[in-house]
Amino acid sequence: MAPSLPTVQPDDVTMAEKAPHGGSFDAGNAIAPQPALFDYLLRLGDDSLILGQRLTEWCGHAPALEIDLSLANIGLDLIGQATLFLNLAGEIEDQRRDGDKLAFHRDVLAFRNCLLVEQPNGDFAQTIARQFLFSTVQLGLFEGLARSSEPRIAEIAAKAVKEVRYHADLSADWVIRLGDGTEESCRRMTEGLDWFWRFVDEMFDVDDVERSLIEAGIACDRGSLRVAFDARVQQVLRDASLSLPEYPRAVRGGRVGHHSEHLGHLLATMQFLPRTYPDAVW
């Protein structure tokens, strides 16, 4: 089986020629509006998928074997959640795309994850900062989604919430130990939280896509999770003898496909094999 080097298919060319800007990169509104529920499931699935992929980058590189396994375990939990959400998204879309197809054959502009999850790992403290912020938000979100009026979402969230509680507790434990540790660990933990703080607000944004689903009782209102999140972060930072980061300007855009350059590099690694060898099986 020879690698099919350029992945541009004849269909892609026809589609590009019909597009308003001749298919030029990121011009105009290239992506057609999608049903809200499909979009919402992509947001849930892509958050887990991209952070899961990021965490697997630690495999074999973590500071200790025990941490290597901790991070890989969290990564695998997240990829498991992504599989369930993206498979359901494919079912809702009904265009014969399953979770694998959505994960490995979608381009960067069609990804709906928040910007926080696609940021590089940095050092261990930075990875822990990202995990603590993300898992703390995700815990509240999944607790809400476990009561969703869409039973398939409620079922996934109810299963995942146990995993996420462990992720949130483990990362909080590490924030406290690094913050309250040596001078160097405290400096790194502070820098990690400072860096990721700008990506926090986006995780609580509610737009029209989600508003209609919240009214239908399907989605969880992210805005309502903020108070509990702030209280938890303050509590952990107090135990860690750290102060709350000062607000740099919040960065947003992931939910509408405006990503940082890091996501493209991540996808290149993640998608290379299934795109180069589309018929490959385990």
């Binding site: 074997l65 025990e66 396994l69 901790s70 375990n73 483990l170 434990d173 130990r177």
Partner: peptide
Amino acid sequence: AELAVRHARDV
């Protein structure tokens, strides 16, 4: 001790 339990769980 607390992280020992977590590490034991993860490993």
